[in-house]
Design a protein around this nucleic acid. Structure first.
Lengths: 147, 147
DNA sequence: TGAAATTAGATGCATATGCAGATAAATAGT
DNA sequence: ACTATTTATCTGCATATGCATCTAATTTCA
């Protein structure tokens, strides 16, 4: 008879896999970005704010699949560095419009070679087909988990 | 001519994908585990210590693809709850052997239905083939990135 | 054997993550 | 118009993450 209490669970845990992958890959991006003085979290925020100039905190948090309170705090270091502005919306003074300063745009552009190098390193390991498959699968999964 | 400065980077970033996936999937596991009073991080630690009774902090950190200092801190809540023991190794008194207490084993077993439910939810979204492919691909990637 | 180098783990610091609850502003209902 | 509800963001708390650095114990090797 099979003793189900002995079936090991953690080896099959998809959650721990994603967390491990996020840790390892983040370490590599952070190492490549370190000379430019920003983290991959910060690079991602600058990139998103650049793409969606004037977006509010809540809307950006949703795009990032991140709690709004986490985003609020993650924006602080970028504000202190003078890379990001949070200006109250004229029509809705609860909301804050995010935008890049000139030095924010410069920092994003300057760090690009570091991001490119990290991206290439992971791309080489996964192979371009698998890389694309992973991106598409994750996007689809997140879409399907939307509530 | 193509203006390469306009090519958007963040949409293609595999790192941000893994981080998003880890956030979203962790939220779901944490929600399912919340009634049992532990997080997916803690469930994973209990599961690993159960599998590798007596393992040291450094060796476990390597298995988890986690900085040893992070693991040290992540073990604190489990020590305080009385789920995990860190006993100095007899042969090397720098090293600490990790083991589960009886209540640690009970907590792990009790939380199993929450983990099962979360696992099933993600499995249903991905489909079993894709789920397996993701696990294998991530494991291979982490193996290839070992230095 | 005894000093130098290495190793295991812990601490200080900064950022990352999210829940519960607070505050302020806009909207809905009467 | 006035109250109640909803919405956008922020704060307090606890955990998660990793780098630089520290301490203590082991190992190397001259």
């Amino acid at each position: 008879m099979i003793n189900s209490s002995k079936i090991e669970t953690t080896p099959a845990c998809i959650c721990l896999r994603f967390r491990k992958a996020a840790r390892r890959v983040s370490q590599i991006y952070d190492q490549h970005l370190e000379p430019y003085g920003i983290t991959i979290t910060q690079y991602g925020l600058l990139g998103h704010i650049s793409r969606f100039e004037g977006i509010g905190v809540g809307a950006l948090a949703e795009k990032l699949v991140m709690d709004p309170t986490t985003l609020t705090r993650n924006l602080r270091p970028l504000e202190r560095k003078g890379f990001v502005l949070m200006s109250p919306d004229e029509k809705d003074r609860r909301s804050r419009n995010l935008s890049l300063t000139t030095s924010g745009r410069e920092a994003l552009a300057a760090a690009r070679p570091g991001w490119d190098a990290a991206q290439e390193k992971i791309g080489n390991v996964l192979g371009s087909d698998t890389n694309k498959l992973m991106i598409d699968t994750i996007d689809q999964m997140i879409e399907d988990l939307r509530e």
